[in-house]
Write a protein that binds this DNA or RNA. Structure first.
Length: 479
RNA sequence: CGGGGCGUAGCGCAGCCUGGUAGCGCGCCUGCCUUGGGCGCAGGAGGUCCGCGGUUCAAAUCCGCGCGCCCCGACCA
């Protein structure tokens, strides 16, 4: 690391992000352009994300499975909007075992097709429904412009794929999973999100309806943090996923798919991070608390370390994720900065004075400097730490929500609209016309992020064309 | 794919214009000293100067052709 200080977010948000990701050792660049190595610290965060999501999936009746990475090229061609959407970004395998393949294989960009193929075999009767399967895997899309976590050629995610007997059930599933993502984002990641419906232009290739959760990053731009698709009968028809209903009639299934990816790591970085570095929400942080021991002499070291290990054991017993920084040769000051950059929500400073007084210093990551430091008695430390972690989690959410509100505007006219999307979200009436949407994108670079499920009601005039409108939409520049 | 920039130690860069012993900062290693907010001192290791070709007595430097990366535009979880 050449410089010790990061660029500030105001100076260069993009560079702040890039340096932070590599310096905090979340990820590194791979030898292939656009690919990412997720390092242990970044993967630990992702594991905590997956654990919380997986728990929710299981609680709603889903089961995990694994489908192959290689898909016959012809599968992609079976659903016409799907092929149109994905063809440009497919990685194709043409050779195997030294021979040219008879039929090229694509590396999955998503698994609707191969899962559709499987479902058509497995589903015969209404008694087989619903099928509720999820898989944790990675997929490949040949993106042109990449950025660690936010857009890489290969990314890690989960993709849920379900099949249902009726349209209503499929829609309910689609919405249930959108709610699941919303709940996860708000409660676990402390990321306030806006659940809503995508426009036709932004819809998934092959879906009837696409929903997403949208979050505002620290620079005011939007990030789609998760999506849920009602695929109607499009894939059922392409892959002949059919069942016999109670009356003995053959019907096509109604299917859904939904995904959340390592992109979410980028969201956590850009929502909570400050000029010092990362700030992880306690519920997902790889380390919730770091202990920095302070000592001069060998005697001091012995007593401080003994105390540190005792406190660590107590905290671990209380299921708190603790890191004891035992590195020799780095000063406490260095460690303070290092762990702040790495986003650990709470730091315990433990020196000879603290050992003597049976107390510790706890420093909150979300409140820099003296303001965030408190002296806490060693007795009952686990309770005190747990309580603080809960407070920090809430404070992060509150701060992110306040930021989003402060940077979300309801412009009165198109001139104000243009200003609004320069630095945040515009929440505006939209007539629903794709031409208006395209013109807005052309003229302002802002896209329609979603039509929030939560609507004010009533009606108004489209922010662009002035025609009557019944829905308000979020417009913003997006990642 | 179009426009712009850049490839020199792990990272960030200087040197190139005007050809002549490959340098600086940070990091790394060893030792001493320090440690309550990014310690200090001394010594040390580390190079295909992106690749190939050309010009020249001599190329990191000049010329040509490749390759790669970054930024900006069209596409995107």
């Amino acid at each position: 690391m050449a410089d010790q200080k990061l660029p500030t977010r105001a100076e260069d948000f993009s560079e702040w992000y890039n340096q932070l990701v590599t310096r905090a050792e979340l990820a590194d660049y791979a030898p292939v352009r656009g690919c990412m190595i997720v390092r242990p610290y970044g993967w630990a965060l992702w594991e905590n994300i997956t654990a919380q999501l997986d728990r929710r999936f299981k609680a709603t009746g889903h089961v995990n499975a694994a489908f192959p990475m290689l898909i016959p090229r012809s599968f992609i061609d079976k659903e016409k909007s799907h092929v149109a959407g994905f063809s440009p970004e497919l990685a194709v395998v043409t050779h195997g075992g030294g021979e040219e393949l008879e039929e090229p294989l694509v590396i999955r960009p998503t698994s609707e097709t191969i899962i559709g193929w499987a479902y058509s075999k497995w589903i015969q009767s209404y008694r087989d429904l619903p099928v509720l399967i999820n898989q944790w895997n990675s997929v490949v899309r040949w993106e042109l412009r990449t950025k660690l976590f936010l857009r890489t050629l290969e990314f890690f995610w989960q993709e849920g794929h379900t099949a249902h007997a009726t349209q209503e059930e499929a829609e309910a599933e689609t919405r249930q999973m959108l709610d699941t993502y919303t709940d996860f984002a708000m409660k676990e990641a402390a990321v306030p999100v806006i659940p809503g419906k995508k426009s036709d232009a932004e819809r998934f290739a092959g879906a009837d309806r696409t929903y997403s959760i949208e979050a505002m990053m620290g620079d005011g731009k939007a990030l789609q943090a998760g999506t849920s698709h009602n695929l109607g009968q499009n894939f059922a028809k392409a892959f002949e996923i059919k069942y016999l209903d109670k009356t003995g009639v053959q019907e096509f299934c109604w299917t859904t798919s939904w995904g959340l990816s390592t992109r979410f790591v980028g969201a956590i970085i850009m929502v909570h991070g400050d000029d010092q570095g990362l700030i992880f929400p306690p519920r997902l942080a790889p380390f919730q608390l770091v202990i920095v021991p302070i000592y001069k002499t060998d005697e001091e070291k012995a007593s401080v370390m003994e105390c540190a290990r005792r406190l660590r054991a107590e905290l671990v017993d209380a299921d708190i994720r603790v890191k004891l920084d035992e590195r020799e040769g780095s000063s406490p000051g260095f460690k303070f900065n290092d762990w702040e950059m790495r986003g650990v929500p709470l730091r315990m400073e433990l020196g000879p004075k603290d050992v003597a007084k049976n107390s510790v210093v706890l420093a909150r990551r979300d409140r820099p400097g003296k303001e965030g430091k408190t002296f806490v008695d060693q007795h009952g430390i686990a309770g005190a730490v747990s309580a603080l972690l809960v407070e920090i989690q809430q404070a992060l959410f509150d701060r992110a929500l306040a930021f989003r509100k402060a940077n979300t505007h309801e412009p009165a006219d198109y001139a104000e609209f243009k200003q609004a999307v320069e630095k945040g979200f515009a929440f505006s009436w939209w007539c629903g016309n794709a031409d208006c949407e395209a013109n807005i994108k052309e003229e302002t670079k802002a896209t329609m992020r979603c039509i929030p499920l939560e609507q004010p009601g009533g009606s108004g005039k489209c922010i662009h064309c002035g025609q009557p409108a019944t829905e308000k939409a979020i417009f913003a520049k997006a990642y």
